[in-house]
Design a protein around this nucleic acid. Structure first.
Lengths: 144, 144
DNA sequence: GTATGTGCAAATCATTTGCATTCTC
DNA sequence: GAGAATGCAAATGATTTGCACATAC
């Protein structure tokens, strides 16, 4: 399987754009942990490692990463979007605690079937889906 | 079935808060159409009808409406949240066109079963779910 | 060499907040 | 009459943009 960077380089080449060390640093950092991320947090992680990358460069890169399918929007919370890298993962959904933010990822093949059914019924060309279940985790529901 | 306003009045009373004509106007406007709404659009709709309601009043009301379950967040798009009224509707999910924004609502009982399964498996107390399928509608996929 | 990408600072846009005033209970 | 809610204007925070400079191709 191609690495994330290779996928991105190919995309850049096909589009006639230019690659830069900043972009590779950002992508490297996104894939450095399994966690979800948001722009500010990603920026701080890069800064901590003494990498000189500005926030606008991150904001400008995100649409391309979405387009390549390397990342996707995960959820909107605390006034901003949170993303996750999906390249190399199976598609998954989220079970998220409203109180502490704990997130569990799970796979659900039945949703793919449902997607196909909808595509047919409504004559849509499906690009993806987001299934988010919210509630209280074991610990938090005990203290409600 | 109680009207939306009655539900809200009851909530206000129980909480020891105060009701106002502004709040009733906002709620009335939210339920005046079947469409989704966002704050700015709702504000303009009220303005057009010569109703004097400020945006902060809308913003301050929304958390209460979410708490009563009269409305819910529908999706984040164009830099802000979109809501929909759900009181009196069956729970539904969205199929949305990425290009033109056309949205189809559909019901899916199987998701409730899935929710229950997850609740058991991960020991969560489930509050709700959001299932959003995105793609291109018939018209838009023709012009890709 | 060209024109894309970068960082900075300023602008924009959604949302929140402080505050004086008004209104509900 | 006390405390909530309102509207306004200012503050905040996320994101975007203009621009001069750097650099990838």
């Amino acid at each position: 399987m191609k690495s994330e960077i290779e996928v991105f380089r190919e995309f850049i080449r096909e589009k006639g754009l230019r690659n830069t060390p900043e972009r590779e640093l950002i992508i490297g950092e996104i894939f450095a942990t399994h966690d979800h991320f948001d722009v500010d947090e990603l920026y701080l992680r890069l800064k901590r490692k003494k990498h000189k990358v500005s926030k606008p460069s991150i904001y400008r890169l995100i649409p391309y990463l979405l387009e390549t399918g390397l990342i996707q929007e995960a959820y909107f919370e605390d006034g901003h979007l949170h993303y996750e890298h999906i390249y190399g993962h199976e598609h998954h959904c989220h079970l998220r605690c409203i109180k502490c933010g704990k997130t569990i990822e799970f796979q659900e093949k039945s949703l793919i079937r449902l997607e196909k059914k909808l595509a047919e019924k409504y004559d849509f060309s499906i690009k993806g889906h987001k299934f988010e279940v919210t509630g209280y985790c074991r610990k938090c529901k005990a203290h409600l």
